[in-house]
Amino acid sequence: MQAIVNISLKEGVLDPQGRAIARSLGDLGFSEVNDVRVGKQILLDVDETDPARLRQRVARMCETLLSNTVIEDYSIDIADET
């Protein structure tokens, strides 16, 4: 099964990269952009058939390694929960 982890910076954590992108977008005429925050997506292909168990394991992975919970939030999507 495939799990998709989305990692984003917590509110209040400075994102200088996002700020630079926002400024560039403004320069390119996208003046409607107020703010940009950059995150990352991690795709995991996992030997697991039970979506609930997969979700639980991936949450453990996020807490253990994939995210730094001091500055980052994470969310998990399971690709084919059918």
Partner: peptide, 17 residues
């Protein structure tokens, strides 16, 4: 050391990029 939790906080991207 911050990533292990031995020290609090985290070092993020320099504000000036």
């Amino acid at each position: 050391l911050t990533e292990t939790g031995m020290l609090p906080g985290v070092l993020i991207r320099n504000s000036g990029l």
